[in-house]
Design a protein around this nucleic acid. Structure first.
Length: 270
DNA sequence: GAGCCTCGAGATCT
DNA sequence: CTCGAGGCTC
């Protein structure tokens, strides 16, 4: 079944293993909006109060056409307050959150930029070798390929991204607007309960998001990943698990249900 | 020992 | 999908 983009009429492509469709047309407004939404999203720049809905509206009103516009929004304060559904409080809180995001570490920014193939994890890996965006920008593909987990394709994607005039311009704009471009976050491990244990999470848990569980595990020296393999130590199975549960059973991997997880978290936390 | 292939593992970033 | 390990060939 072929689907078409409601925004520009181009064909929609399905991404392998992903639920969403995306528009083939690089210049499609829908794609630009998607990119902007990605930029502010939880695991990227994490700007609260500027969600999907609002971003779409702001794009259509012309307040935000490109990512650097997010950091120019404070000059539109008076206009924003006049908008329906907004007031002094919500606008100021949003602007504060935007301001705060300027201090994010480089790995968040790298992920937020949406470089092809560079997700949250790969962004962190890159930051271990390049602690500022300038050093990353001046790296060539041979050098990048030498990094474990970065191969020729990712290297090319990175180099090409930083070759693009528009991208370079945007990065300079962001820099001038005060966005941090160096790696500052350090992994804080509280204890080693889960040292070198590999976890996979499937399904949902009461009162806890996946990210919270993930953070909990990582703080205790554990690792999380998205796919089950024989290297996985524990699979956390919540409500409505996916095929990961089946795979865990197939491979005979330890399974913890919600009860077990909460029990362990209770013991560890006291 | 370079150049292939295949395959398991793990990340993808809209 | 991409990466890298390991196996195979020349």
């Amino acid at each position: 079944m072929i689907k078409y983009c409601p925004m520009c009429g181009s064909k929609l492509k399905k991404r392998e293993g992903m639920v969403d469709f995306f528009c083939e047309n690089i210049h499609c407004p829908a794609r630009k909006i998607e990119g902007l939404i990605h930029f502010v999203s939880r695991n990227a720049m994490n700007i609260d109060g500027l969600g999907e809905r609002i971003m779409e509206d702001f794009y259509n009103y012309g307040f935000i056409k490109k990512i650097s516009d997010i950091y120019r929004l404070n000059s539109k304060r008076e206009e924003l307050i006049e908008l329906e559904g907004f007031g002094i409080k919500s606008v100021d809180s949003m602007l504060e959150n935007i301001e705060a995001s300027k201090h994010n570490s480089l790995d968040r920014l790298l992920f937020a930029l949406g470089i092809n193939g560079i997700g949250a994890k790969t962004a962190k890996i890159l930051c271990k070798y390049y602690t500022s965006i300038d050093s990353l920008m001046s790296a060539n593909s041979t050098e990048l390929s030498n990094i474990h987990d970065i191969g020729p394709i990712l290297s090319e994607n990175i180099v090409n991204y930083f070759k693009d005039e528009n991208n370079l311009k945007e990065i300079e704009e962001l820099r001038n607007l005060g966005v941090n471009m160096s790696y500052t976050s350090e992994e804080t491990i509280e204890d080693e309960t889960f040292k070198d244990k590999r976890f996979v999470i499937t399904g949902s848990f009461e009162n806890l998001t996946r990210d919270e569980i993930k953070a909990y595990i990582e703080k205790r020296g554990g690792l999380t990943s998205d796919s089950v393999s024989k290297k996985t130590d524990v699979v956390l199975v919540g409500e409505a698990p996916g095929s990961k549960r089946d795979k865990a059973l197939e491979l005979g991997i330890t399974i913890w249900n919600q009860e077990k997880l909460f029990e362990i978290m209770g013991i560890v936390e006291k």
